[in-house]
Amino acid sequence: MKDTFKNDINIGLSANEKSLPSKYFYDKIGDALFVKIMNLPEYYLTKAEFDIFKNQTQDIIDTLKIAPDTYFELIELGAGDGTKTKELLKVLSHKNYAFEYLPIDISLNALEQLETRLSKELPKVKVTKKQGDYFEVLEGLKNSHHPKVVLFLGSNIGNLGDAEAKTFISNLSDALNKNDKVLLGIDLIKPEHIVLPAYNDKAGVTKAFNFNLLHRINSELEADFNLQQFSHTPEYSENTGIAKSFIVSDKNQNVTIGALNKTFQFKAGEKIHTETSRKYNDDVLGSILKNSDLSIVTKLLDSNKYFADYILEKR
């Protein structure tokens, strides 16, 4: 894992337009910070999707066409703390549906905490956790021929560029069997005054979340990033529907990464791209799904119409 981390950091910081992979936000500290972000007043995404899972749970089950006596695998890509998913698990467990829950996440810490909580709160639910990048885990899905429902929530697909999202959807489609379902949570295109504060909260938690990646590089790769000499700067374009997060160098400076035996130069104002958060509408999602075998069955909206959970089916 460390070699992959080291190589990814080297590639990102060596590029003409520097970047750092957002998947490395998540360690024990990053997990805790993201839980704080989800509870911030500015961060509407989690609340909006929770609204759907809390108040339209039976609608989700009905639309997924889940039969109580037919065993299926409920697979969640990027499970995190599972707060929203528990609303679905509660109903499935209470009504004695035959299923196994397979949470997948890059953070072993998040998976272990989720497994511990579910064993106490929903002991009847069988949980099989899988650690890894969900791009890699998708390959393993092909080995199972049980009916599948794949959850990809939190607008995680929005962290991918459109070309990467198309590839991901195509790979996901290929890993599924006919009539398998996907519940895809996506953030909808909205005005800047709603979106931008979600990535630039007044308390500075999102800044700390981004800077935790620099902390990780310092501690795990023997680097000397001076966090006092960098800023956190998010951007959002309502026209494109794309939000981006950047760490920006406040001055001309050099940073040495001991594990790479390499020094990187930063100019004043130079950006390090850390995350993309694409927002969607029906047309954008349609273009992403165009060359896959997944088709839209319906969508469920939260009460403010900020967020949508789309139900997709493998043709």
Rank of each mutant, 00 (worst) to 15 (best):
I169C: 09
D69W: 02
L138R: 04
I60Q: 03
F307R: 08
F246H: 10
N210K: 03
L77C: 12
N212R: 14
E115I: 12
N16F: 06
F135T: 13
E73F: 01
P123Y: 03
N55P: 01
Q113W: 08
A79K: 04
L300T: 06
P234T: 00
S19R: 11
L114H: 11
G154F: 01
G140H: 11
E238G: 11
K314Y: 05
K126L: 13
N109R: 10
A15C: 02
N304W: 06
A98D: 15
Q58L: 12
A163R: 13
F266K: 09
K86L: 14
E87I: 00
V137L: 07
H273Y: 05
T233E: 13
S173C: 06
I75Y: 07
H273E: 14
K314C: 09
L89Q: 04
S14W: 04
A223E: 02
D81Q: 11
A198C: 09
R315H: 14
K120N: 15
D31H: 08
L122S: 13
G258C: 04
E164R: 11
K267S: 15
L294V: 12
K314H: 12
E270T: 06
S231T: 12
A32P: 00
A308N: 14
L196M: 05
Y97S: 09
I296R: 10
E136R: 07
L151Y: 03
T63F: 05
Y26Q: 06
V150L: 04
F72T: 06
Y24G: 07
P234Q: 05
Y24C: 01
D201A: 06
G12T: 07
E42Q: 08
S107Y: 12
T167K: 12
N171S: 13
S144R: 13
S170V: 10
Q58I: 12
K86C: 11
N239P: 00
D187K: 06
T263Y: 07
N200G: 00
S173I: 11
D133I: 08
I311S: 13
S155A: 06
A79V: 01
F209T: 03
L89V: 01
I247T: 10
L20F: 04
N96W: 00
L312R: 12
T46L: 01
F266H: 01
K129M: 15
N261R: 08
E238T: 11
A165W: 03
V248R: 03
I186Y: 07
F34D: 02
V137P: 00
S295W: 05
G269I: 14
L45W: 03
L160G: 03
F53Q: 03
D51R: 07
F246W: 02
S249V: 06
